[in-house]
Design a protein around this nucleic acid. Structure first.
Lengths: 316, 316
DNA sequence: CTGTTAGCGCTTTCAA
DNA sequence: TTGAAAGCGCTAACAG
């Protein structure tokens, strides 16, 4: 068997023109029942498979989904969140004949975004760490989706809110939060949830900015202990950060959860393996990434919240 | 500024034919110094950027690199090794205008591989978990690379060998190995290294198969303790497995490294955070993946070993 | 609803 | 070394 026959052969066998065959097989444009059947039959007798590249060129559409990750550092490309999302998109777009390209964008990337919009090999763009401030080029309208903030995002308000509630319900009254980076729009939701809950409960606000890393969890913990020595719970917005917190606390001889309770966010596998095992909330990264890919390609809503469920283990 | 001008405009401005412009800009075929300069100048006055999709269609080349992962389960696609490699390739191929698609392949996938070889949108294939037994379709010759076994792989013989040496040098004499899956060609190297070293040292062989997961590390540890209760060291071929070992040992009241030493492989971030911190060896996954992508695309050797260095921490 | 006719933008024979 | 012309395989505007 040689390579797949071209559309012309299918058309010939079906006794119609290439145009008609194209309409039937691509599902775009009108076609009569008769020709539809003839073409379909011809196509699968011949084992016809459309050529994705030719199709895309003719349509003027690109062949790859670009995952652009906005961050201070290019090192972000090896962050677990990014690698998981990338792989999920690469798997999700595979059946469509597309591929995923990955790229880092600095905090102010208007120019780069413009260049990306002009790249004709780019079918659509999914952006993480997006801030609505940097406007999306008009040429990207209809083929852009954002992960986080006002795009596709996990419902961190609910997830972290549930954990905070649990801390409160189990008697914690001096709860500190190690948040996300201030420049990240998506980091505002959990911060807001925290503020609201603390206010409503008449509890003090104790916030230290973080960046989702374990290293930052360690330094932030020291800051918390120095500033508010009577803290009885530390909530975070990422499991990696929480692991850093756990280490520092344990290293300082502070008992978890007896002296200080700790919560994470993401429910990464290791969260179940730490001692004590980390209480956290789920974050369906793969689901979100796949939805973002679909949204950017115009096959799904561009804004959606994905549920996050608390997973209570031993650090609370 | 509208979209990039086509090659025709460049040719016109340079006063040559499209064919000549193409030869110059693509670097394929002859060209005189004169026309070369004219074309180059015209190209960058106009800000010409070649259209990757059109180029690929004309050349009959695909637009995406397919990362095919052979494993018993489709769940492998969310394995950290796979996600890291995928992201690394997606970043590495980005500048070339390509994308990466990800797909699971069952253990016997001759038919699927054939179908992949026939897919004209596939520029090249990188395969993980490859076993030379299942032959690579001829149509993939020159555009195929394997990660592991006789393709691009980490030098696990050296990495794990160094750890085993260290165990021996520090007095361990009853060293068990939790290996990789028997069906995986790449898992044979560390196994062979272990056998050789144990034989040379006159030590007993104690092997239990594993699968790179923590869960398997836990069950395998129980097997080891049951079969050879006097074991004083457990070496593994993955950090995840080693973490499972640590948990089980600790849970059983066995002191690490006092009673039993433990070693991992991969040097994943959490390896530094466990208590006690895990001794392991490095595994440059991103480097290997990028090299595999280059190899499949015909720009690098198809077989190479990447160094692995021991990282001695507290479990030895 | 259908066929004809141009493309999509670039590469590559082939003859000059 | 160069240009003309014929594709790569499919889609889309336009009459009919």
């Amino acid at each position: 068997m040689s390579s797949s026959p071209a559309l012309a052969e299918v058309a010939r066998l079906a006794g119609v023109s290439v145009a008609t065959a194209s309409r039937v097989l691509s599902g775009r444009g009108p076609s009569s029942t008769a020709s539809r059947e003839a073409v379909r039959r011809a196509a699968d007798t011949l084992g016809y498979v459309p050529h994705p590249v030719a199709r895309r060129l003719a349509r003027g559409a690109g062949t790859r989904l670009l995952f652009a990750v906005r961050d201070r550092s290019p090192g972000i490309l090896s962050d677990p969140f990014v690698t998981r999302a990338t792989a999920a998109m690469a798997a999700a777009t595979e059946p469509a004949g597309l591929g995923v390209a990955l790229r880092h964008l600095p905090l102010k990337a208007a120019a780069e975004l413009d260049r990306i919009a002009a790249d004709r090999s780019v079918a659509a763009v999914v952006m993480a760490g997006h801030d609505s401030l940097d406007a999306v080029p008009a040429r990207l309208h209809g083929r852009f989706a954002a992960i986080g903030a006002d795009g596709l995002d996990v419902d961190s308000t609910a997830g972290i809110g549930a954990l905070l509630h649990h801390l409160h319900a189990t008697g914690r009254r001096r709860i500190a939060l190690i948040g996300g980076p201030p420049w990240l729009a998506a980091a505002r939701a959990p911060l807001h949830a925290y503020r609201t809950l603390m206010d409503d409960a008449g509890l003090p606000i104790r916030v230290v900015p973080g960046d989702f890393t374990a290293a930052r969890g360690r330094t932030a913990t020291r800051t918390v202990l120095r500033r508010w020595p009577d803290t009885d719970a530390i909530a975070t917005v990422s499991d990696a950060t929480a692991l850093g917190v756990l280490q520092t606390l344990t290293g300082a001889g502070i008992r978890v959860p007896h002296d200080i309770a700790v919560t994470g966010f993401d429910d990464i596998p290791v969260a179940a393996w730490t001692h004590p095992a980390l209480s956290t909330a789920t974050h369906p990264v793969e689901l979100i990434a796949a939805a973002a890919a679909a949204a950017a390609l115009g096959a799904a809503p561009e804004s959606q919240r994905f549920p996050s469920h608390p997973v209570l283990r031993a650090t609370t």
